[in-house]
Amino acid sequence: MNKIPLIVSTDWLYERLDDPNIRILDATTFLRHSETGYYDVWSGKVAYDEAHIPGAVFADILNDLSDPEAKYSLTVPSREYFTHNISKLGIGDPDTYAVVYDRGAEVGNSIASSDWASRLAWQIRYEGFENVAILEGGLPKWQSENKPVTNEVNTYPQAEFTGERDGPLFSTKEDVKQAIGDDNIVIINSLDPETYKGSKKTYARAGHIPGSVNVFFGSHSDPETKALFDDEELRKNFEKAGALDPDKKVITYCGSGIAATWNGTILNKLGQNNVSVYDGSLTEWTNDPTLPLEKEE
């Protein structure tokens, strides 16, 4: 089977709804910033039950596809745990392909980003299944075009997950520590400018990882139409950061390794394939008082 694009349009998916080899995953997860600074996160299963793209199955990132015993929520689980649960959704057979979508980044925020979908797609690729795409604009764009939705629950035949872990896609705290000051590695903070500068405190400590540059994950799509900007526009922010240099490695991070995967996906789309995601991100980093942070005035 030919490899599908990293990001597919709503028309592309609509034309393939009846393809027996497609596996559509609704990765909706809801995040809302609380008054205490940190955020609340909950599953999108109820929203899926109310309406979803025909044929889609619900992929519960929070409860079924993250490590249930980890110190922090949304941590990558063991390969055995993830592949067991994702194969039950029909993902893994080499003659199939997957399209993942969500309902947006944050509750009550107009940010246009498919970062929950990109998180799941990144996890699937990390475990070795390559033929997975993200739906541009997700369900909001799909519904704005009056494309069909249903509340009919679907299932796919259980798959046999194939492939091997792609280790370079994943970065640990130690990897990031070693990357600070390395001219061959660009570290990208994917959060909003206020959090990056340290003027807004969401995590245990305010600020950013020393030497990291800020490319806001919400700057890649039109907030009204949810459509991605063209590649020329997408390149601008990443070129300023030096992240498109093919001779350099890029590590992206955010709060919990979600928005970072959207930046990673856009970088891949632009031809930068040496991209890794720091899974623990600032949730882990700021909870370790021995690790440095920088602020900007």
Results as ranks from 00 to 15, higher is better:
3 K>I: 13
7 I>L: 06
8 V>S: 10
13 L>N: 03
19 D>I: 03
21 N>M: 13
21 N>T: 09
24 I>H: 09
26 D>N: 10
27 A>W: 01
32 R>K: 08
42 W>T: 00
47 A>T: 12
48 Y>A: 02
51 A>R: 02
56 A>V: 01
57 V>L: 02
77 P>H: 01
78 S>K: 00
81 Y>K: 00
84 H>G: 06
89 L>S: 05
93 D>N: 13
100 V>C: 04
101 Y>F: 15
102 D>F: 01
104 G>N: 05
106 E>N: 11
119 R>T: 01
119 R>H: 04
123 Q>S: 14
125 R>N: 15
128 G>M: 04
130 E>K: 08
131 N>H: 10
133 A>L: 03
137 G>M: 06
139 L>D: 06
142 W>C: 07
143 Q>H: 11
144 S>G: 00
145 E>Q: 15
147 K>S: 04
153 V>L: 14
158 Q>M: 05
160 E>V: 12
162 T>P: 09
168 P>M: 01
170 F>T: 10
173 K>E: 15
176 V>G: 08
176 V>L: 06
181 G>T: 07
182 D>M: 13
183 D>T: 09
185 I>P: 10
185 I>F: 10
188 I>W: 09
190 S>A: 15
192 D>R: 15
200 K>W: 14
202 T>Y: 10
205 R>G: 06
206 A>C: 04
210 P>L: 02
211 G>Y: 10
213 V>C: 04
224 E>K: 07
227 A>N: 12
228 L>E: 02
230 D>Q: 09
232 E>H: 14
234 L>P: 09
237 N>Y: 12
239 E>R: 13
241 A>G: 05
246 P>M: 12
247 D>A: 14
251 I>G: 15
254 C>P: 09
259 A>T: 08
260 A>G: 15
262 W>P: 03
268 N>C: 06
270 L>I: 13
284 E>Y: 06
297 E>K: 10
